[in-house]
Write a protein that binds this DNA or RNA. Structure first.
Lengths: 229, 229
DNA sequence: ATCTCTGGTGATCGCTCGATAAACTGAGCC
DNA sequence: GGCTCAGTTTATCGAGCGATCACCAGAGAT
């Protein structure tokens, strides 16, 4: 991590003169922290202060603050994708429930922290394309996959695309879990500390709900689970 | 609505000189719109432009921008409380499921709109007391009440406070529904258009999950609802 | 020892922000 | 008609913002 400590100059509390790459990534890292707390209105001077450098230095590495922000997006949004959930969710040598449990534990380990959630919500409020892309990704790569595995597990025909009702079921389930993170890290409200237990319980009711839906869909064809009005 | 149209001056596209009360509430209304879109960083000049007046006028009605913001909070947070859910949720002359269905339809009618949700999320990110208060209110006035009714319906002892696991179950359910609004109005992602159907489905799996939990709590104590592996 | 190249700084510009003070204006009252 | 008072505007302040430019300084090559 430490590179090229000068022989002389033992004092000098802040070593400066980092390599270009190191400085650049340091800007991104600290900018993520700053923007997570202050929102993207956080100032470039406050950012420079966090690095112990002066504000104009930022512009040696990024043409504008907006470019820095884009870099922060890239880092934050791509971080949780490094898990490789394809194989985790689709590995049919393992029981479905265990796969889902592990996936959501790993996934929430990646995104349930103050930094990620705040950046995500701030960028969501800005309505950026990258946010839409992420939501679409969750739908296609996670929820659709989960539903396909559920259908397979229940012995149903594996259709290419899930029905709108199924998708909504999965979204409500997924959103319920996501909201646990929001309550804990954004609202800082007390939550059930055992995250794995929360996931397990949520899975219980989701899987039970899916089974019911599957049953009523096979018995009579495609009838709403229950019509109230 | 229109007050005191001057006899002459038929032109004059913007009638000004409103009464103090009217002008004040107009500031709050338009500020809510502005802050919902731009966040609380939205400028006082932009706000004045929306009213067709000049910026310093704001300071005749509010000592500072922060006071205006507080007023916006008050209005937004208290709006959905005017429903009177006490009687709606606790009216045991009606079947539980119908009460829950109606409550969530009415509640989401009140909060599922771009304005409310965005203000709510922005203020949540600021970590203000009023947000904590609201979350606590949801817990005490909605979720706890729902759980009590569920226990009663299932013939269980009505304990004063729900268990942490029950509460978490209810939170995940509630959060799943809430997230539907976020997806629709914040992310502007396509959702199942039939909101009532979404609520109905979510209720199905929540109630089924609660029943199972209640059963396993009475049969053997605290066993995972279902273990697939 | 000197040169050079590059990471880093100081000063500053133009703009927008929230906020203040003083001047203006028009409807209601005598 | 003229007075008054409350709603509104004009002008302006100081601070903070993103961004630019000329300059500085220190490590490595020669």
């Amino acid at each position: 991590m430490n590179r090229k400590m000068p022989v002389k100059r033992v004092f000098r509390t802040k070593q400066k003169r980092l390599s270009a790459d190191d400085r650049r990534s340091e800007f991104v890292t600290k900018a993520t922290e700053l923007f997570a707390e202050e929102g993207f209105g956080g100032g470039t001077r406050a950012l420079a202060r966090k690095l112990g450098v002066t504000q104009p230095l930022l512009y040696r590495y990024f043409p504008s603050k907006d470019d820095l922000i884009k870099e922060v997006y890239r880092k934050v949004y791509l971080e949780p994708l490094e898990i490789g959930w394809e194989k985790l969710l689709s590995d049919r040598s393992r029981p479905l429930r265990a796969r889902l449990q592990e996936f959501y534990e790993v996934y929430t380990d990646a995104i349930f922290n103050r930094r990620w959630l705040r950046i995500y919500l701030y960028s969501g409020l800005k309505g950026l394309d990258i946010n839409r892309w992420y939501v679409g990704m969750v739908k296609d790569k996670i929820l659709t996959r989960i539903l396909r595995e559920c259908r397979h597990d229940a012995g149903l025909a594996t259709q290419s695309r899930p029905s709108a009702a199924e998708l909504e079921l999965a979204w409500v389930f997924h959103g319920g879990i996501f909201y646990y993170g929001v309550r804990k890290y954004i609202y800082e409200a007390p939550v059930l500390e055992d995250k794995a237990q929360m996931i397990s319980d949520a899975l219980d009711i989701f899987l039970a709900g899916f089974e019911r839906m599957a049953e009523s869909a096979t018995d009579r064809r495609r009838v709403p689970i229950k019509v109230v009005g």
